[in-house]
Design a binder for these strands. Structure first.
Lengths: 213, 213
DNA sequence: GTACCGTCCTTTACAGCGTAAAGACCGACG
DNA sequence: CGTCGGTCTTTACGCTGTAAAGGACGGTAC
């Protein structure tokens, strides 16, 4: 069970800690990430982690910052294409680490990787002819859309909710006629919510053009 | 300290529990909402709450559902105006209860108030000429934007971050030239991030028109 | 009246959490 | 060899959600 990592004295580094903490959260959610469980995974007592990380808050800060390293930076001549690819990548990363979006809310001091990422995007937009304010707006609006969409995706239950089941079994039995219409005519007609992401993204990207000088 | 609520036998109701739990979370964040603290506020032992609520998860479900009661329903002939007012209200409600957006992520079964709200919005859009699918898209896209924007607002620190302070004291001292430009030419030029909400909202609302039959 | 019962609340207890404090080990240096 | 500094372990405290059991009350039945 302890193969794969040495676990002995001197084997602990901040890098290894962040790596295993990420894996732990990916597998069991933020709730599974306790200092004791993390220590167990590292082949060490929980308290040992405190010699490399100030406290759990600092560890979560580091986890959040690392996430931004995975998001593809925008590139290419066409700003619309470049931004689109970045947003698509951002969504995939946030889905791969479902705990990340919950951390963004509580982390008020962005780390160096996050700042570097944002700096790059702003610079990319400035190079495409956006003013400083417009660049900041575009980044904020796109991130808002991506964050919010992923938030809704994560809240989607794996199994159909009682309401959805009720609609399928006895249509007209709920007090929500319009939701019923959406379920039967959209959801059950083969439209996947995940596919709507790019529809909204393209509409928003089109709208962003109005902010360019 | 115990004035204002009876606190005796039979004084506990689900309504009172949800009400005080909301107040507790509003004042001290989700972390301040423990069953013992809630009981204390209700003039009762923590375990007494369990006779009216299955467990803490169910309580959080109820809290989340109640939030949707506060969001103004869209009304009026012009769908754009109606939706705009709803989104503005939604943002204010989410800012008033900063814990709510963090709960949305983990609650996978929407409550009756939430469903009723969504049903109303879908019906409103259908009445304005949107197809079932388009209505669902508009609702999802607008909510995504509002959720994501509030998420970013909540992550804004009260005090300026080290980076912002560094830029103000010694411009050019950070490795983030484009962020520096945004700070000096946008943030410090009087543009308030909160005011950008309606800019993006209007752009998005304009884009939603393309989804109408 | 008084015995009973069901409901509401309290008490006690347990495993887990983050982390402060202090002890134990171990390689390196004088 | 002795001692020091860093790394890890041990122990402990107050907090968490909640299972289990006990106690107190009000209403009903005799």
């Amino acid at each position: 069970m302890d193969q794969g990592h040495p676990g002995g004295r001197g084997s602990l580094t901040v890098g290894r800690i962040v790596e295993e903490a990420t894996a732990l959260a990916d597998e069991g959610g933020l709730a599974a990430l306790s200092m004791r469980a993390l220590g167990r995974r590292l082949g060490v007592e929980g308290m040992a982690v405190y010699h490399h990380v100030a406290n759990k808050e600092a560890l979560l800060d580091a986890l959040t910052d690392e996430v931004f390293r995975e998001i593809a930076l925008p590139a290419g001549e066409d700003w619309r294409t470049g931004l689109r690819a970045r947003s698509v990548s951002e969504r995939l990363v946030l889905r791969r680490h479902p705990w990340a979006i919950g951390l963004v809310e509580t982390r008020t001091a962005p780390g160096p990787t996050t700042l570097g990422h944002q700096d790059h995007v702003i610079g990319y937009l400035r190079g495409a002819g956006f003013s400083p304010r417009a660049a900041a707006q575009v980044l904020a609006f796109l991130d808002a859309y991506v964050y919010g969409f992923v938030l809704q995706e994560l809240a989607l239950p794996a199994d159909p909710t009682p309401v959805v089941r009720a609609v399928r079994e006895r249509p007209g039995s709920t007090p929500f006629p319009h939701l019923e219409a959406v379920i039967t005519e959209v959801v059950d007609a083969g439209y996947d919510f995940a596919d709507e992401f790019e529809v909204g993204l393209d509409l928003l990207l089109d709208a962003m053009g109005a902010l360019r000088g």
